[in-house]
Amino acid sequence: MKITAIPDYCLGCGLCRIYCAAAHDGFQGNVLRAFKHGSPLPRINLINWQGLTYFNVCRHCQDAPCINACISGAMQRDENGRVYVDNSRCVSCYTCILVCPFGHPQVSRERPGILKCDLCRESNREPACLKHCPNEAIIWDEESGPTGSAKNKVHGE
């Protein structure tokens, strides 16, 4: 279970990051409330370089290095296969950041805690980035689909 962006149709507009930030931390998708009255933090990294874009988001690996490495048990997998972090148990050791082969988890402004994609499990809706991409460039990964389990690409399976 993971999402990806089709590079041919990603505009690099960054709306995914804005809707991502507004979907988390209790802002419930309200962009204005999030950005005017809060300090929203996106879980997506989008790199725009010389007309190319790279949408860096969690792969929710089957054999996830971040879960294996987490020293406090904060990094977990839910019943749907989504890898998420329970910030109440996080101690900000940043081992997950160190071991992630894709460089996805980010240091959070709030400590302890890290930022990572949880496929909007809190709202239990379609991920905000996928829903709001103006060009439908963000899609469920073809191999896994919204209900399937991701193949472990990390260890070359």
């Binding site: 690099g12 507009c13 804005i18 950005f35």
Partner: peptide, 13 residues
């Protein structure tokens, strides 16, 4: 101004 969040999407687009 009371709505603009300075996200820069307009600049990029």
């Amino acid at each position: 101004e009371s709505r603009c969040i300075k996200c820069g999407v307009c600049v990029q687009q």
